[in-house]
Design a binder for these strands. Structure first.
Lengths: 350, 350
DNA sequence: GTGAAAGCGCTAACAG
DNA sequence: CTGTTAGCGCTTTCAC
């Protein structure tokens, strides 16, 4: 592995000149520069990033901290972020937090020790102490997908409250009144927003929210499966279900099918987030899609802009909240006579 | 950020003693060690990994190079690898090669420059030059999922040839004779192996392989969709299809459904690799599953064992080829009278 | 324009 | 047992 010293020797100059040539070619005479460049690629010289980083106190790596690397959402996000980062000359170091704030903080320390240039994080903490740690972080941060309320940091995501509102509206317009939502854990920002969007739509339509129809699926397919089982075996079961995430929609669908119900005849189902291979799932689900590649691109750019910012005056936090797109499948339909009668019957007899 | 110097000062010793204490506590008197440890965590001292790596010529990071971060297989693999690596004190840097050998090589150089401790790679190259580059790499390597033939490197994967054989046997035993395979690009190791396994099973059963039934789906759902369309609109269409990957199975299923055929009545479908949320896909696919977490664990351990090996005599390359598990769904069934008659009719009239 | 020198934070002989 | 010293490879004043 050739070092700067080898290049200097081979070009007959001092190492400072070599260094200068790579950093600031104009400040070096054209022909020494030529000699140096030639020597450099003859030797296959690559500056040692470790030495550079040690000297500069900062590496050319960005850290990415997500709740679940293996989820389809983050998979696609990481792919695009890595690509964008690489284009701009940064490598990506990734860690999985399992959605555990304590792990996040520990990993944050490790990343700090590595002198990462910037951090992309999907924050899962909610305590004040957690917030203080995030805020006290000195390297640039961008929050993606999730957010910590009140943190003055860049934030990129799709408008998840609007997503819930769009789907709820759609169900209401079809004639549904008893609409359940399988929510995420409500201490999480996105989960709370999705509940909020649902409430807004219900209120706007003058409908009363039955709190019993808001059940926590913990963003997990298994938990959603269990909750759907409970919902659908109630006497006053909902005529429509809104799943707050794709994994949960699949869990719900499985429960519906195993109970012998069919969708959308017996119950409508709508979901937030894209489902991979949604085309082959029967029925084709009504859902809102987010443009993951765009989220990745914007968040990577926010982060790297901040990393490379030279001006002494700090950049004000930026936000990008993208409008999701409604895709109507055939998992949603007007409530049938049957469903209505069921409900009527229950109402009268209970 | 406290440095070793701060700790030394605060504990009233020299920096070498501090360093020694962390590296080799027994060689330091118990009470100086105590003083140093106390000072260290009072100051929140963490050794600067950049400085350590520069000095040692090797960092505590492993590089992972995969063809597609966002695929469900690699998503789960990365998650487990990262976890295992972290347990053993290593961070993970990931890059996506898009299955392009040239990109792999470039990324390899970048990783080398970073002085990674080890490399986990799913190699997609096939040229001799590529092989030479891999072989000439001085840091430990483990190949995972894919392999480069003839490279003397650790290798971990499930027995993909056996997987193809198992599925083909299953179809043959059901009575199928005209079995198509939607293959991956055959210059890739896994794709070639899957074809090979298919051939072995056919030969063992004394069946002739119709080369026209081996079509390249490029490991892509869209391409598989197109190929299935072609296959199923032929006059001598197959009675069963074996998809060499999960994405391709989904593409095939979509084509089958859109053509108005039903599976398994009109055609059986079997696939290699686990499909996420397979429970909600109708029909439930017959497939072979691989234990991704185990692959991840073994490959991470192979790699880190090599990284941490102290003995001067080199470890011989190790291989772990896991036996996959057959999971029979309801996408495979004996060929129906209808299918057979169709075929007979074609045979007579053509 | 170019070079000498100091230092980023740490490790590892080598002395004492 | 502990301290001194010489780097690892690079950047960055500051002279010449």
């Amino acid at each position: 592995m050739a070092t700067i010293k080898d290049v200097a020797q081979s070009a007959g100059v001092s190492i400072s000149t070599v260094s200068l040539t790579f950093a600031n070619p104009e400040r070096v005479s054209p022909d020494t520069a030529q000699r140096i460049w030639k020597a450099a690629d003859l030797l296959g010289y690559r500056p040692n990033p470790l030495a550079q980083s040690l000297k500069r106190g900062r590496s050319r790596m960005i850290g990415v901290l997500v709740g679940d690397i293996s989820s389809p959402f983050f998979g696609r996000l990481l792919k695009s972020v890595e690509k964008r980062a690489l284009e701009r000359g940064y490598l990506m170091i990734v860690a999985d937090t399992d959605g555990d704030p304590a792990r996040e903080l520990e990993l944050l320390d490790q990343f700090t020790a590595q002198r990462i240039a910037g951090l992309m994080i999907s924050p899962h903490g909610s305590s004040a102490a957690y917030g203080r740690r995030l805020a006290g972080f000195k390297t640039p941060i961008v929050m993606v997908d999730h957010r910590f309320r009140g943190a003055d940091l860049d934030y990129v995501a799709s408008d998840t409250r609007m997503a819930a509102r769009m789907l709820t509206d759609h169900l209401i317009n079809l004639g549904h009144r008893r609409i359940a939502q399988i929510t995420g854990p409500v201490q999480l920002y996105t989960a709370a927003e999705r509940v909020e969007g649902y409430r807004e739509a219900m209120q706007a339509a003058g409908l009363q929210v039955d709190e019993g129809l808001l059940v926590d699926g913990r963003y997990r397919d298994t938990e959603s499966y269990a909750q759907t089982m409970r919902l659908m075996t109630r006497r006053d079961k909902p005529t429509a279900i809104l799943a707050a995430s794709n994994m949960m929609a699949l869990g719900a669908l499985q429960a519906i099918q195993e109970l012998g119900y069919s969708c959308p005849q017996d119950v409508s189902l709508a979901t937030i987030d894209d489902i991979p291979w949604s085309a082959v799932i029967q029925p084709k689900l009504t859902m809102v899609l987010q443009d993951i590649e765009q989220i990745a691109q914007i968040s990577a750019d926010y982060l790297l802009d901040r990393v490379e910012a030279t001006s002494p005056i700090p950049i004000a936090p930026r936000e990008s909240v993208l409008v999701p797109r409604l895709s109507i499948g055939n998992s949603t339909a007007p409530p049938t006579l049957k469903t209505d009668l069921d409900h009527l019957h229950v109402s009268l007899s209970s």
